[in-house]
Amino acid sequence: MRIVVDAMGGDHAPLAPVSAVCAFAAEHPRVSFTLVGSAAAIRGVRADLPANVEVLPAGSVIEAGEEPVQAVRRKQDSSLVLAAEMVADGRADIMVSAGNTGALVAAGLLVIGRMHGIDRPALAPVLPTFDGRGVLLLDAGATMDAKPQHLLQFAHMGAVYSQYVLGVKRPRVGLLNVGTEAGKGNQLTKATYDLLARSNLAFIGNLEARDLMQGTCDVVVCDGFVGNVVLKLVEGVGLGLFNVLRDALTTNLRAKCGAILLKPTLKPLFKRFDYSEYGGAPFLGVQGGCMKAHGSSNQRAWYAALAQSVRFVEQDLLRKMSAALSEAGAE
């Protein structure tokens, strides 16, 4: 198994990805890694790389503010594009990047290419839930103007990923909507509801946003515009609540003493809503493994994304997704 890593993408690159890869590689000697990026910058983080880690020099980096498609086409020597080419050529089983999300999506489509039978791929992050199980959200921004058939494909791919990577035996699938009744929503959700209801999935019906984090389902389906808004809202609310709680617990001496007493209880709670515990968001529907790590991923988050990537490859997800789509007639 070979994992290729864009060592230059993300807020903490190359320190976080290089450190995580070296730590992970030392513990998993049978997995090979390729770090793509500035050789000097990578060696500056770790001069003595493990034997199962190699470096592929890249001449440029796609920055966060660049237009995705133009950047992918113009910067053929960038770390992200070179990583995608390794997957497309079969030299790597999966790529991981914390860089420009739009560029990763563009590289997935233009360089790696779609799976046979897939009209639109989907980004699928795991959102935290109050029961600690997490819920797979797709799409989170890859397909803004989706059609009902696209959402049906999202549901099948998400169910396979949830089952084999996240360990859910029979994933419950919900459709994000403005109400739980079958007739609710716009033309897209109404048509999608009918397709999901006739599918072989464990479809539980419509799901309102207020129930999203209650653990009601394991996979929630929506178009990329709605999904990206939900993702950013959950991240913003979570960060804001933690900041408010931190400020309240450090206001005065009494609050600080209370914080010391509450620390054993609060620590598991913070961990439950910490994005670094959930790894990356797979870009499902491309003909190769493609994992998007959070842009602000630290070494622990990168390590989780690498572990998630290993499970993706070990479970032969591409073949299983193709089989599920073919069996269900969702291609």
Results as ranks from 00 to 15, higher is better:
Leu138Thr: 00
Asp223Asn: 04
Ser19Pro: 04
Ala106Thr: 15
Ala58Glu: 03
Lys169Trp: 06
Gly102His: 10
Val313Gln: 00
Leu261Gln: 11
Gly108Pro: 05
Met291Val: 15
Leu241Gly: 00
Phe242Thr: 07
Asn100Asp: 06
Ser97Ile: 01
Leu262Pro: 04
Glu208Gln: 08
Ala304Met: 07
Ala255Ile: 01
Thr192Met: 03
Ser19Ile: 09
Leu195Asn: 11
Val244Ile: 12
Leu152Ala: 03
Gly215Tyr: 13
Ala41Glu: 14
Gln163Lys: 10
Ile118Leu: 11
Arg73His: 08
Gly141Arg: 13
Pro29Ile: 07
Ala301Asp: 09
Pro57Cys: 12
Thr129Arg: 06
Arg91His: 12
Val230Asp: 15
Ala305Pro: 02
Ser97Glu: 00
Tyr275Gly: 02
Gly289Val: 07
Leu201Arg: 04
Thr189Ile: 11
Leu35Ile: 05
Phe312His: 03
Ser162Pro: 09
Val105Asp: 00
Trp302Phe: 13
Tyr303Cys: 07
Cys22Ala: 04
Lys184Ser: 06
Leu318Gln: 08
Gly65Glu: 13
Glu181Tyr: 02
Gln149Cys: 15
Val55Cys: 12
Arg198Ser: 10
Gly279Val: 14
Gln187Leu: 00
Asp11Lys: 00
Val229Lys: 11
Thr216His: 14
Lys147His: 09
Lys263Asn: 01
Ala47Pro: 01
Asn228Pro: 02
Ala98Arg: 10
Lys147Gln: 15
Gly185Ala: 10
Ala41Pro: 11
Cys217Ser: 14
Lys263Ile: 00
Phe270Pro: 08
Asp93Lys: 14
Lys292Asp: 00
Asn200Tyr: 05
Ala103Val: 07
Ala71Trp: 11
Glu327Arg: 12
Arg170Thr: 08
Ala140Asp: 05
Ser162Ile: 15
Val36Tyr: 03
Glu181Thr: 04
Val5Pro: 01
Arg46Tyr: 14
Ser38Tyr: 03
Phe24Ala: 11
Ala146Lys: 04
Arg114Glu: 01
Val244Asp: 10
Leu241Lys: 01
Leu104Gln: 10
Ala191Ser: 14
Tyr278Arg: 15
Gly185Phe: 14
Gly205Ile: 07
His12Leu: 15
Arg319Gly: 03
Thr129Val: 07
Tyr303Phe: 04
Arg300Gly: 03
Phe203Leu: 06
Ala197Tyr: 04
Leu201Lys: 11
Val96Ala: 11
Gln315Phe: 05
Gly285Gln: 15
Gln187Lys: 01
His150Leu: 14
His116Ile: 02
Gly280Asn: 04
Thr189Val: 07
Tyr164Cys: 10
Ser60Thr: 13
His294Tyr: 09
Ser296Asn: 13
Tyr278His: 06
Ala155Ile: 13
Ala146Tyr: 05
